[in-house]
Design a protein around this nucleic acid. Structure first.
Lengths: 169, 169
DNA sequence: CGGCAGTATATAAATGTTTATATACTACCG
DNA sequence: CGGTAGTATATAAACATTTATATACTGCCG
């Protein structure tokens, strides 16, 4: 199970609560994993039962008491073993990519509109992605840039394919 | 559920059996979705019950009778509606990417070894990925190329960071 | 001081995915 | 003719993920 290991990895940097981990996971796509908090809380419980993390309750000025977890040495060992497993090229698994795969099934107009929307999403993501300080972040940024180029090229192709369409009224 | 819609999309190109669909899905990463056959067979049953596909049994010279499905007009409608849903930037969800995100936690030696292994996987994938005939395939290929550049850059950086290591004996 | 907004944890139910295993049919080899 | 390799379908069990909902605590605004 990767979620547990990613959580261990994050806890290796600093102790955190389930809430914190949810925010970090959501905020850093370069981590390569995402999860809802509803999944994180039970995962932390399992890690606690397994002795991979330790718990300290702290009351906070805002909201109910925080349950802060920190990684144990057993957790560090487990994480290291997971980290050493062999890499492979990930298979994409995303509804948006599946929709893009059927772009050619759509009318030239909606195809262009989809590409333009996707392009906007990409450029927004890019402006909120500062130049990377880690290999994974540099990777993420380069891929976003490439995808933006791709979108531009496809938009251009789509436009030039339409040059004979009714222009204006 | 995206799997069902991807299957409808594939069946829109040509009728196929569950086996065929499994092969196509496995063979084309640009489709943006992957699934085991154990998931495909029940999905096809549900599509059949829903009237989105029609079934014809055909015995084949090899193996047990094939159950060939073809899309119905209800299926086409359902697919078109799914296709029109808004795109978003996919959140990555892959163990390998998560491992890459913690590259910096590893020793310079294993970091370099991981990058080199990953680089090899990328270049193998690339040689088996012909230049794309669809937008999604072109996208996939460009991203693989970029990732290869990234790996090269990271390997170079990793090597130059090691210039003062013991060289040779 | 009542209610709202934000932080924080939690759980159930539904849904989706993976892994392991079983089975059937045919062709071909030895 | 028996075994095995390849095609094809199928199901159960285990596991993971998403969605919806509930609850608690605090500060602050009106």
């Amino acid at each position: 199970m990767s979620l547990a290991h990613v959580l261990l990895g994050l806890l290796g940097r600093a102790p955190a609560s389930g809430w914190d981990l949810g925010s970090r996971l959501a905020g850093d796509p370069a981590l390569g994993w995402s999860a809802e908090r509803a999944q994180i809380y039970p995962a932390l419980r399992r890690l606690l039962r397994g002795g991979f993390v330790a718990l300290r309750r702290r009351r906070s000025s805002k909201g109910p008491p925080r349950r802060e977890y920190r990684i144990t040495s057993a957790g560090r060992r487990e994480f290291r073993e997971w980290l050493a497993e062999p890499l492979e090229i990930p298979k994409p698994h995303a509804a948006s990519l599946a929709r893009l795969a059927f772009l050619e099934k759509r009318s030239p107009e909606t195809r262009l509109a989809s590409l333009e929307l996707y392009r906007i999403l990409l450029s927004e993501k890019l402006t909120h992605t500062p130049p990377g300080t880690t290999a994974a972040r540099r990777r993420r940024r380069m891929l976003l840039e490439t995808e933006l180029h791709w979108a531009d090229a496809e938009i251009a192709a789509s436009l030039s394919g339409r040059t004979l369409s009714p222009e204006g009224r």
